[in-house]
Design a protein around this nucleic acid. Structure first.
Lengths: 224, 224
DNA sequence: GCAGTTGTTCACAAAATGGTCACAAATGCA
DNA sequence: TGCATTTGTGACCATTTTGTGAACAACTGC
């Protein structure tokens, strides 16, 4: 599966340039033209694997965006700055940036650094949803139960993800089928039950977070 | 089921651009080229899930349209403005807009915001009826009595929900049967009594909120 | 094509819910 | 007070819903 990279720069030419090179190299790209939008996009798309962040921007500069993203995840971040000032660089690392590239730079160098960073941070988590003893890493598509990494099948993962997304709400089987299966899925809604069973089994005692709502469907909720 | 989005802008190019991107992302779109038309379309089509509204328009500007729509419903509204003036933004929020995007913007950003907003408003829609010591959470589908969560059976929950919805009004058994049971339910209307009994039992002292109206049926009323 | 995994369906078990009934209690009325 | 009517209640059982294991189909990577 192609890695997805968020490119944040207020200059459109620079943004397009970077995106084009990355796409040519087989990456998917998403773009944002200021920090505010970057944070929005980032919060909304759990499948972003790496962020390239210009320092100088209107509406939240790169430092701010970097700090905010770090509150959410350990996603790899590369920062771009106009001048290669060392003090800036140190400041960036302090905030949690992984790489630091000063303009001007050759696109090849950028792509090479992206590859290197992705390799380096392969095992780093991109956990976006975290509950008591249960973490869901939507980027890497696995679940951590009491510190133990758990591999779920695609359907199981999507099902858990969907329920967790609607934490606290009762979700009908039909809703689940529409969201996790195709919207025009033609089949037995009891299939959901079977997957719920498997999920509960795999989640161990955290399986209790998936509650049955009689006559409706299921509800994800931490504790009781 | 695909969400339907109403796009309102007097510039045809902009309207088409936005529509195209939204459709490419799997949304349905409806278009209106001025405020008057927008309000007409909105009033006629109950299946619109979100509105994107340009501020500068002939025949009712965006502010007016926003205000009018808010009188009708809590539908999510995103406003577009030519310049990113903060005062405008504040004004927009005051009128009930949920999001505010200043031109120029990238279509991807717009789509991302639409996703984010739809998700936010989906979660916002948990309906909660609250009475003295008794809360009915229709989204989560449970009842809280004096801080203690209560598990009701489907029929019990719907029955209580229906009565609470008609707080202060006496409801006949037939009305209850039509609303909570199938409209063509064929059976003893005394069944309602049995369920009322069970409800009162489970609700404890809050069971007194369900009063008997002799010769008619029941009435939900707090205290007295 | 094969072995292993994943997804779906089915049948049966287990659990809970819903409906009916008979009788008790309460209410309204004369 | 006594009577007719309405409502409350507990028990019983049929029905519905959900859990579960197994069989089978579809898919995946080699």
């Amino acid at each position: 599966m192609a890695k997805k990279i968020l490119v944040v720069d207020d200059e459109e030419r620079m943004r397009k340039l970077i995106s084009d090179f990355l796409r040519k190299d087989g990456f998917q790209t998403v773009e944002a033209c200021n920090g505010k939008e970057a944070l929005d996009v980032f919060a909304d798309d759990p499948f972003i694997n790496l962020v390239i962040l210009d320092v100088m921007m209107p509406e939240y500069d790169g430092w701010t965006v970097c700090r905010e993203m770090r509150k959410l995840s350990m996603i790899p971040i590369i920062m771009l700055t106009a001048r290669g000032e060392e003090s800036d660089e140190l400041f960036g690392f302090e905030l949690g940036a992984d790489e630091y590239i000063s303009k001007p730079f050759s696109p090849q160098v950028l792509v090479a650094r992206v590859h290197a960073l992705l390799r380096r941070t392969l095992n780093r988590s991109t956990i976006l949803k975290s509950f008591d003893g249960l973490e869901i890493d939507e980027g890497a598509r696995y679940v951590i139960v009491d510190g133990q990494r758990l591999i779920l099948s695609p359907k199981e993962f999507e099902l858990l993800s969907y329920l967790a997304e609607n934490e606290g709400r009762a979700i009908s089987r039909d809703q689940i089928l529409n969201a996790v299966w195709d919207y025009n899925y033609y089949g037995d809604s009891r299939t959901v039950d079977t997957h719920i069973k498997k999920l509960r089994l795999k989640l161990g005692d955290k399986g209790e977070y998936i509650q049955t709502v009689r006559g409706i469907g299921y509800r994800f909720e931490v504790k009781k």
